[in-house]
Amino acid sequence: MIYPASNLLPATNEDTCGPYFPIYFADPALENLTRLDPGLVTEASGMRIILRGRVLDRHGELANGVVLEFWQANAKGVYRTPATEGHEDIDTWFYGYGRMRTATGAYELPTIMPGAATGRAPNITVTIFSDGINRVVTQVFFDTEDGNESDPVLQAAGEEAPRLIARHDGRTASGAEVYVFDIIMAGDNETPFFDDLES
């Protein structure tokens, strides 16, 4: 195999996180994006939602011991990154990064409905780490929000785009609108995943 000439350092290989990602490393502040830390009087702007669902394996069984990471824009569609430092639409009480380990494979993320970034439909980036795989990433959209038809990521998913759209569950929980999104790792109805190393 001939490698293209490059000055880049060869990257350390990603590896599976294995079945024993320490529960000890859990951070409650990253498991509920509607407030910064438990016990603080802070509230993110926007409509409160709960994104919940299951991570399923090739046989439709729950995928236990999975680490999920979430990343989203605030209610005004602005991501909190070094590029948006000092942006007038930053929400002081919202970062947009979440992380949790689910023992069973079922998950529930209290957050706010992300706003639409320029040219995009509202979405949340989901990263999955688990035993047996290196990280895989995708984005989840919402069936109640505008812009899904013209979103470039959904278009890239082609006929399988509906698999990336969370369904409004038609009810509220703790004052939040509930959306349901199952992640199917492999097999029938496999969730479309994206390549953030090669793209």
């Binding site: 069984e61 990343w71 991501y79 980036t125 890239a156 790792m185 390549d195």
Partner: peptide, 21 residues
């Protein structure tokens, strides 16, 4: 049980930054 079998999709350029937590 858990490895996606389909080829991963490329991220459209316009959306690339949104995949950077």
């Amino acid at each position: 049980q858990r490895t996606p079998r389909q080829r991963l999709r490329l991220i459209p350029d316009v959306a690339r930054a949104s995949f950077v937590p």
